[in-house]
Design a protein around this nucleic acid. Structure first.
Length: 681
DNA sequence: TTGAAGATGA
């Protein structure tokens, strides 16, 4: 917003004039003059607005009033009546006379012969444009924009930027580029905001390289990139999980003396957290405090979410206190994140205790909070309580949404209660909620996975299709994956044929499912063939594809193959994750090659990928298998290390550790062990 | 921050 327009909208308009008799405007409307003449106005804002209301159904009268306001604004130096005029524009749009207003303003400006009048007309056109950008009515904005420039009138660059943002948000890259060229050719001088919007458009389209080109071209275009420009690109590389390039840009920012902030670091923190690279997150934390880019509540929320997603909910909860100690107030998102963490683990008691805590802190649970808890009930198979909670929401609010119902529908499908699933789906619609693609997919997957592929389900498919949601790739993937997991490779193959027939191209997820299915059926050669076929078709294998291949080959003792896959993925910049490393460590342990296993263990940590309970269990198990004093010591050391790092062992870890003890001693032994370890600190 | 879904340990 320019300074002047800020003045327009912040000033309260109190200027009063005695009375004002309205006179019509240009001559070609004179046959309606009689209508317009009947309007008299006292000149203060309230009556003006009242009058605008009263003429809403009479476009021409309203238009006359508008002309009057226009003259007033010109007369009083341009800002006195802007707020009224703004309200008028909104009303004109409601009354669908904005087209007339546009025409007259443009012709008025053109005929008016320049000067003050022209300036006012352009201001008013900009105001009209502003109203439409605020309403996100792109089509109208473009119409006004093009009409203006065709008549030699230049819209305000701020409005152009707003239109660019609308184009960006609709992913219309070509439209964005075209609009940018037109505005520049017509003489609108781009600002840093224009360029930053363009950068963001490129990034949102995945064309980050193009954005980089623009970034480095900006100085030549007479506009040096600022911190926001860099933040956009750091964000883009982080989203692409190319952390190296993201970091390079941050270093460049520091070198250039640009301001780094939480906005710069948060996307990177999010990326590392999502990948479970908590070592890197720690490093970033240090770097942030060094460069005075202090973490915000969002930063901590991202870390907490990452920890929850890797099962470290207790660590995540610890951040509530850490935040408080730094004078940051955990917000509803913080609590929702933790509640979700506990709900997903089935620890509803903790989830509800947090629910109580957030209320004590005067935060108000929202629909997400409730949905998360309902999901927790569903995961435990407690559909009664899940449904009761939904009914509570209907009575007391917040009102259930499409998420609420989708969660419940899926919950009932998983319990095999198809009729309740359908009932809730119908209830959602009866309550006026419009199912989205998630909801429809859930219904389809539910029927395909848990129901009979009967005629009724078939009818449902057509019904959904008629609503504009055709069977899509994700639905096929979900079902194909389910079949592969059950070992039903023939049925899975049939579905692949069917999706091809329907013109849907299998992607890396489809292939990974089928490859995995073959691997589990010990059809390694076929799996390798499928892998080659997938690459021939130009489908890039993902980290999951490589991981399932590495796992099966490593477990089968084919360590050379496993290593070859690891090298291949690293050459293709597909980053291995903790599961990939676990598969390798597991394979090398099984072959008794402990040195190599430990090398991978150290290597992953060096890359910032933290070991998890599986990693430790594999190593502990192998050390215990060796059944030798030194190895037993090593197993204990590992166990202690994982406790130190607050990685919670589970029953698997314990039985690995105590595999040589008799069963009756085991539970006692675990307690003893905890004592020994904590006592020796 | 919530809904369907591809992978790991005894």
């Amino acid at each position: 917003m320019t300074l002047s327009s800020r003045i327009f909208f912040s000033k309260t308009i109190t200027l009063l004039k005695p009375r004002f008799l309205f006179y019509p405007f240009s001559t070609h409307h004179h046959k309606h003059d009689a209508v317009i003449h009947r309007f008299r106005f006292s000149v203060n804002q309230h009556s003006l607005l009242r009058d605008l209301n009263s003429v809403k159904d009479r476009p021409l009268a309203a238009f006359g009033l508008f002309r009057w306001a226009e003259k007033q604004s010109g007369f009083h130096g341009g800002y006195i009546f802007m707020r009224s005029v703004y309200r008028f524009m909104e009303k004109a749009i409601d009354a669908k006379i904005d087209g007339v207003v546009l025409d007259v303003l443009v012709t008025g400006a053109v005929r008016g012969g320049g000067g003050n009048n022209l300036e006012v007309s352009v201001k008013l056109l900009d105001l009209l444009l502003w109203v439409f950008t605020k309403k996100s009515v792109l089509e109208k904005c473009l119409r006004i924009f093009y009409k203006m420039i065709h008549n030699g009138l230049l819209p305000d660059v701020e409005n152009c930027n707003r239109i660019l943002r609308l184009l960006r948000d609709r992913n219309m890259m070509n439209g964005t580029k075209e609009f940018y060229s037109v505005m520049v050719v017509c003489g609108v001088r781009p600002t840093i905001v224009t360029y930053n919007t363009m950068l963001d458009s490129f990034c949102k389209q995945g064309e980050v390289e193009q954005a980089m080109e623009l970034l480095y071209m900006m100085p030549k275009l007479g506009c040096d990139p600022n911190d926001v420009s860099y933040n956009i690109l750091v964000n883009a590389w982080s989203r692409k999980r190319d952390f190296v390039r993201a970091k390079e840009l941050i270093e460049e920012m520091l070198k250039l003396g640009l301001k780094v902030s939480a906005y710069t670091y948060n996307p990177l923190v999010c990326g590392y957290c999502e990948k479970g690279m908590f070592g890197k997150v720690d490093d970033l934390g240090v770097e942030m405090s060094d460069s005075r880019a202090l973490p915000t509540v969002s930063t901590y929320n991202a870390v907490m979410d990452g920890l929850c997603k890797s099962g470290r909910v207790i660590d995540a909860t610890g951040f509530l206190d850490i935040m408080e100690s730094k004078n940051l107030k955990p917000d509803l998102v913080s609590y929702n994140t933790l509640i979700d963490g506990y709900s997903k683990l089935g620890h509803l008691r903790e989830a509800f205790s947090l629910f109580g805590k957030l209320i004590k802190k005067n935060l108000v649970p929202n629909v997400v909070t409730y949905n998360t808890l309902i999901d927790g009930f569903c995961r435990l198979g407690d559909l009664d309580d899940a449904r009761r909670m939904k009914d509570y929401m209907i009575r007391h609010g917040p009102h259930p949404d499409v998420f609420t119902f989708t969660i419940l529908v899926w919950g009932f499908y998983k319990m095999g209660n198809l009729s309740m699933a359908k009932e809730l789906f119908d209830e959602m619609q009866h309550r006026g909620l419009q199912p989205d693609c998630f909801a429809y997919r859930t219904r389809r997957v539910g029927e395909l996975k848990f129901g009979d592929p009967s005629a009724e389900a078939f009818g449902m498919q057509e019904e959904i299709e008629a609503k504009g949601f055709p069977l899509d790739l994700i639905t096929y993937n979900v079902v194909i994956n389910g079949l592969c997991k059950l070992g039903n490779l023939d049925e899975a193959d049939k579905l692949v044929q069917e999706m091809l027939y329907n013109g849907i191209v299998p992607d890396h997820v489809t292939y990974t499912s089928i490859i995995h299915g073959h691997l589990m059926a010990e059809l390694l050669e076929e799996a390798r063939d499928l892998f080659d076929k997938m690459k021939e078709k130009g489908i890039s294998p993902s980290v999951v594809t490589y991981t399932v291949l590495i796992h099966s080959h490593a477990v089968g003792g084919m360590l050379n193959h496993a290593i070859a896959y690891l090298n291949e993925m690293e050459n293709k910049d597909v980053l291995p994750n903790v599961i990939t490393y676990n598969a390798l460590i597991n394979g090398f342990c099984k072959e008794g090659k402990m040195d190599e296993a430990y090398n991978f263990f150290r290597g992953m940590e060096k890359k910032g990928i933290s070991a998890n309970k599986y990693t430790y269990t594999i190593l502990i198990n192998e050390n215990c298998n060796l059944w030798h004093w030194q190895h037993w010591q090593e197993a204990l050391r590992l166990y202690r290390e994982m406790l130190d790092r607050e990685i919670e062992p589970d029953s698997c870890t314990h039985s690995a550790l105590l595999k040589h003890l008799r069963k009756d001693y085991k539970s006692q032994a675990v307690k003893l062990l905890e004592n020994v370890i904590s006592g020796s600190e």
